[in-house]
Design a protein around this nucleic acid. Sequence first.
DNA 1: AGATCTAGCGGACTGTGGTCCGCATAGAGC
DNA 2: GCTCTATGCGGACCACAGTCCGCTAGATCT
Lengths: 225, 225
Amino acid sequence: MDRSPVSETGSIPFVGGNVVQRGLPMLEPIRHERADAARNRATILHAAERLVSEHGAQRVTMDQVACAARVGKGTLFRHFGDRRGLMRALLDEGERDFQEGFIRGPAPLGPGAPPRDRLVAFGERLLEHIEVQGDLIASAENGAPGERLRHSVYAAYRVHIAVLLQDSGYPGEVGYLADVLLGALVSELVLFQRRELGMSQEQLKRCWAELVRTVVPASGVSHPA
Amino acid sequence: MDRSPVSETGSIPFVGGNVVQRGLPMLEPIRHERADAARNRATILHAAERLVSEHGAQRVTMDQVACAARVGKGTLFRHFGDRRGLMRALLDEGERDFQEGFIRGPAPLGPGAPPRDRLVAFGERLLEHIEVQGDLIASAENGAPGERLRHSVYAAYRVHIAVLLQDSGYPGEVGYLADVLLGALVSELVLFQRRELGMSQEQLKRCWAELVRTVVPASGVSHPA
DNA sequence: AGATCTAGCGGACTGTGGTCCGCATAGAGC
DNA sequence: GCTCTATGCGGACCACAGTCCGCTAGATCT
């Protein structure tokens, strides 16, 4: 019996993510999801979404979700692994779009613009995302130390930024600088700056742009769109 | 009856921290700690320290500590508020020294050196601290989102760095840059870089120094020692 | 359609952090 | 030393995340 499925959700077009599992020469452990399972997943996501929008992500308990979705707790955890997994699943669609945007979308977020401008756009988009989904993101990240960093979403961002830095001609350790820059966009910090320090979103965007311009060389290759 | 004491521990010489409460014109709620309470606190800290060094901070449970210290759970929580509070208390002494060091200690960490050098030294010291206390620090920070940032230790670091940036002549938002720089020194991240990415401590120090030199102007006032 | 196999279900159960509140007692005042 | 009060104690209790495992029923094969 399979007691631990939970395909790592994370929706990365190019790193891990939800694998489409159809049309394969059906000779391997990947069969496809049973109909009732798919139905349950949808029901759960719906219920969770509603509860989150009603009470806020931080306040929603797994029991509540299970109960609202008329589903056993075991089912919940079978589908999403843990609380964070559920929250991540709720963010999944937006996450997909975002990644799609900076990988293949129009400039300046996507390819075509100079790396530095793409970086600025990247941060601005993320700040906007945090503005509306902040609590959910925080819920999805909050947990065992380092979890966030080990997850494929972080890896995707890190690679993307590192590549941009490379392209910009930055001479130092691009991976390290990527970590630092992403540190400025951690939802926990941004929410703190917005709510506790009373900084406006525009202010944060300006600061981010200034930071990027201070640190990243202006010139650099810009991959054609 | 007082049901929620727990003086915010954090040991900041100049921001909040453990207040010495003697010699006051005894007309106010601050009386001093009863002898048995003091004894218990010490016992608890001892027990906790031992358990942490034996099993690692992440694995130690509050029940274990209470049990090892021969004390009720209520007592534990009365003294330290919550798990993080206990961990912070264990870090307290080192924290005091560190803050003492960058406020009044010898250059380049303390006053006397140019702000940029002090910043480099600050980061290096913190990296060393994380090297030995990393897990404990992670335990102390891990929890409700934003907790870490709201705590007085963060405030102290933030102010210190912001002042150094100001002194260095940095023209932008010093508070924001302080947040970003501190982001590079978050224990969670550093442990990830050390363990998961396999970066050496020296490498991290070099990257930190490079980052600071990239971002912070070289010149600036240097307060005399 | 019936048989078979196993993914998936549910909910009782566990471990842990954190609260509550009646009781004991340290310590101040006499 | 005796009295009095509120500080501090203890451990039963609660909430919540996450596990376990016997059973149900969807899919597949014949």
